[in-house]
Structures are given as structure tokens and as C-alpha cells.
Design a protein around this nucleic acid. Sequence first.
DNA 1: TCTCAGTTGTGTGA
DNA 2: TCACACAACTGAGA
Length: 699
Amino acid sequence: MTGKPRVIYWFRTDLRLHDSPALKAALDLKPECLYPIWCWDPHYVYRARVGPNRWQYLCVEIPLEINKKKADFFPPGRLDCQSDLSKSITKLNSKSKLFVVREAPQTVLPKLFKAWNISHIVFEKDTDAYARERDEKIIESAKEAGVKVIVKTGRTLYDPDELVKANGGKPTMSITQVEHAAKKIGEVPRPIPAPESLPDPGDTTLDIPQDRPSQEPDINKIQRSGSETSYNKLAGPDSSFSVPTYSELGLKPATTSHRGGETLALAALDRIIANESYTATFSKPSTAPTAFSPPATTVLSPHHHFGSLSVRLLYWRATDTMEAYRKKGKQPSTIPTNLVGQLLFRDMYFGAQAALGYAFAQTVGNSHCRFVPWHLPSTISPSTGLTTGSYTISSTLHETWFQRWKHGRTGFPWIDALMRQLRLEGWIHHLGRHAVACFLTRGGCYIDWERGAAVFEEWLLDHEVACNSGNWQWLACVAFYAQFYRCYSPVAFPKKWDPAGAFVRNYVPELAAFPEKYIYEPWRAPVLDQKKAKCLVKGEGRDREGGYEGALWEEAGGMKVYPKPMFDFNERRGICIEGLKNAYHVGLYGDDDRVKNGSWRELFPDGAEGPTEGGASGDVEGKMGEEGGKARGAGIKPGKSTKRKNVGMDETEHEAQELGGETKGGDHRTDPTKKKKTKKRKLQGTLDGAFRHGGSEKE
DNA sequence: TCTCAGTTGTGTGA
DNA sequence: TCACACAACTGAGA
């Protein structure tokens, strides 16, 4: 190739102009022409779970129609990531824009190299497992076509591969490891300003055939009310490479008030930084999960997900703000609870994923994920060893619990409010995520964390494979965290933050008029109080069709119905802790052959949860099955016990309390026959107290 | 081998 | 509001 470079800048995880090392590298080539493109990848359209809210946040220009009362905090406008970026590009060069090409990058890029006589392709590094595979293919095609490839890190503070290298080649599994590794790598680079001009794009005439993707399997069918037509023409319906429209995607209406785009992201960051004490003293654990308008945390995570806000920009602006605060003689918050700490946690999960690849998002094959015989386990493809997207209904009771959890009908108002907020807004506070994740897995339902992760994948605006998988493993106590005896109560925990229940009243409107005393335990309210609040606590949260998707029953006279709790929480907590204790003693990890071939069952003779399996309601238990998958060596971790511990809980103990009835709320963990190391506990107790008043964002 | 810390638990009693 | 006990995990570091 002679003459000036002709460059494709491939936008992916970096929908911004500010602080983009990759974009800078492209412009440093002093190109003759620059094609800013986005490949409309069928992997995300059909194979990854993406709900309407995240599609809107990515691309779609529609006016804000809902939650008008929140319009001051979430300003309306024709914004969102791709549209905003495209407009910003055009502002710098009226001939340019974001050119959205509707085909898989693996097939269309080689054609574009030829059609547009490209010399270089530049993009931001993406270490997600699918992205790595895809990019390797692109790099190979580029090589064959004589096109130079430039890849730059910009999605995380540190290059995840560098982080892993600095961690001895191992996945980063603790914040301490990240801090040590980061020290070896050096300081996070200062952000780069946005370019002031952009080169012209070259001729964009395209006379090439389109490779249309296969629509099947299409796991996003459920997100659409119309037909998906985005692949009808390579350059879009009017051949202008436009950002896809809602109708083109056939999507159901979005419901969130959170909106995307670099313009909004930078404005939000300015607003946060302008509040010096908030920024400098931000401490995640002391931010209220019940605050919703406005939320207590920054809600910048969706912007980081789409790359509309650089993490390095937040890092440095927060760091500088904390430094200025310190210079005034005041004490800023520290890692890991401060804003910088939140970004380090994000890097930790990216480091873990970079090292473990596809296996990081599942149990089977994951050398760092404990095996727990959860209910509703994923089915595994024997050929790839990867999850297929479907799961085994190991128990109809647990499937019912899962559906009730997903649709906010558990009968626990705190859990239901959070799940409804998640579906409506695409965002919930980090501690809210803790609460619902703990409840679904080790602190209530004993259901596979992969089920919960899939729901979050579908509904979260800020869904990041690495962070989502990592957080679910953390909360399920299968990796990163092991204190499974610390369990979130759906009653005590929210009471601490929001005793009046404003959050619940907003997202579970049928309980709006419930007395404060019963807002987190409505089943305890006398019928007279229920009638006065125009809401009866009865039934199992089914809709008229007998499912969980449709509207809840409303009885004559505007009397609403809110479901009874689906189990006795204290009882379930006890069962789950015993189950986890047993699974820890068995000590299997996801890469163990016995996990892959199903012979783990011999180590759990009493079933998933032990002899008390099934809980209070005593529904029919199905048989676990259908897993298996490719054996890839490995085994039990050295030093881990494989002895089975007596699960020791009397079945009658659990049958004793009626579902939804009055419970004593006593500490199930207390055993008066045991004398404990008092001196040691004294110290630990003090520290625990200190943590609670410490304070902290890892949405 | 031991000690102690670990972003974000709960309930009780002073 | 605070300290402590509860039951007991892993990983880092001495």
C-alpha cells in the first residue's frame, strides 16, 4: 500500500470521542480518509440477551415518554450512544458520521477492506471471550488483505491481559491482587482530549453482496412485538448507514428513564465532580440502595459499559478531587470503597475473565468457581463444554420460585421492588443486586447463579459479561467471597435504609398504602389493615393466565392483591447455609471431571440441599440431570477436603412453620451448647462494626 | 503454621 | 447508636 493511510475506525466498546487511545492512534496515522464504522453484529442481535432498554441506550433515537417527573434528573432528548456519537462526529466533520453497517464484522470487514481500499483498521481492545474469537478472525483477514491492525486498550484502567501477567498469569480474584498487579504495571495514563477535527470519510459507495445472518437461534424474540428487519439492507433502509431505528428492530417499547450517549455522560460526570464532598468521600457500602430518584450512586456504569464515558477520565477526575480535598485538611474515602476502588473491582472482573475466557461466565469448566449442586442448572453442550442458554428444571417448586423472583412476585416486597425496578429501569443499586442475588442463590432459593446472571444480562443497561458473572459468583459465594453465613434478610436489610418503605411503595404500588409497620412483611398485617390499605395479601402472584408475566389480580372495589411470601425466609436461610457448608466441604470446582460427567452426585447423596431439600412447601423434586460436557482435566483443589460433612438438620424443624405464618425471627445460627473463642470474636466484631460505617460502585 | 483482614449481615442488649 | 456474638469461609502475610 502506498500513499496516505486509508483507515477504518471500528467503534465497539468505545462510543465516545474523548479519551480514546485507539481513536488517537487512528488519527496519529494522519489518514487520507477515516471511516468511523459500527458493525451491526448478529451475535448481539440474536445470541446475547438484550432487552429493549439496553437497545435504546445503545442506539435508538426516541423522545422520552415515561417518568416525566424525573425529567430533570434524566433529561429527555434524542440522544443515546450511537446517535449522539454520530452527531458529535458530524460536528467535527460535516461529511462524516457513524456508518452503521448491517452485517457480521467477520464477514463484512474483509469486503470493506477491498471495497474502500483500506490500509489500516484500528479498534479498542475487547477481552470478552466472544470478542477475542471474533477479533482474532478479523486480524487474520486483515493480514490476508495486507491491512495493518492497531489495537489499543481503553475500556479498563489496565489492559486485562497485562493485569493477569502482572498477577503471575493467574486470574485476578481479589482486590489485593489487583492492587499489587497494578503497582507493577504503573500509573493509569491521564485521559486524552477529544479530537478537534476528523478526516473526511472516503467514498462510501458499496457495491458488495450482503451476507445475511441466520436468525436462528434468536433468543431475543421475546423482546420484540414486530419483526426484526435490521439486516434487510447492508447500509440500512435508506442506504445511508443510519443508526437503526426502533421499528427496524421490531422491539417492544423501552421503559427506562436512563438515557445514553457521550454528551449526557460527560454532563453527568461534571455534575458529580462539581459536588466535591460527594466525590471525595464516596463510599459504596454507605450509599442507600433504596434511593431511586435520584439514586445514591453515580449511575455512570451504563456509560462505562458502552464506552460513552472513559473509565480513565472518571479515575483521574475522582483522584484529583480527592487530592484537592485532602489538601484542605479533610479526609477523603479510600480504596476499595471509594470511586477509584469501584473501578478497580471492575478491572478485577475483567482480569478474571481475561484469564479464564468463556469458562468465567459459567460453573462447568471454571477452575475458580466452586461447584454447588444448585437447582435449575444450565445445560451444557457436549461438543463445546459451554452453556447452551437453556437449563434443567430439576424441581418444579424451584422453577416457580425462579419465575416469581424474576417477575417481582416473591411476596417479599423488598425483593419484588428491586426486580421490578430492574425490569423497568434497567438499573438497580449495587446493594440491591446483592439482595436479590443472595436471595435467589445461597440465601433463599438455592437456585443456580447462572439463572440470575441471565436475567441481569437481559435487563441491565450496564450489563458487562465480566462484571455480571463475577458479581453473581461473589454473591453466590462460589468465587471471590466465601462468608456464606453472612446473609441478606429481605426484611432487616431494607429496614435499615428505608424504614418507611418509600422505595417499595414506588415500585410495588399495590402496597402504597400499607402501614409502615408491615411494609416489608405485609403477610403479618391483620386483614383489617390490609383492607384499609386496599390490598389483600393472598395467592401466589399468578396472572389471569396462571403465569407470572401478566398483571396481578385485582378484586372488586379496587382491592389489589399482593402475593403471600413464597417461603419462610429464616427457614430457607438455614437450609441454604447448611447446603453451602456441605458443598464447601465436598470441595469440587467447576473444572473437576466429576462436575462435567455428573458423578458429583455420589458426593451429594442427599440431593442438592441435603436431607431437608425442598423446604417448607414440600413440592415434588425432580431429578437433576443432563449435564455432562467435555472433560478438560483438573480436579479438586489441593488441600481441600473431599469429606462430606453431616448436614444435620431435622426435617421436622423445617416443616414446623406455616408458610406466611408468624415466625419468631430467632437466630437460627445460635447454638447454646457451643462455647466460642470470645477474645477473637471481640476484635472481629469491632472491625465488622467499623466496616458498616465505612462506606462505597460496582454496578 | 498461625493470625488476621475481608467494600456492603443480623440480632441483641446496653 | 454502638459493641458484641453469632459461625466460621478464604487469602495474604508473618
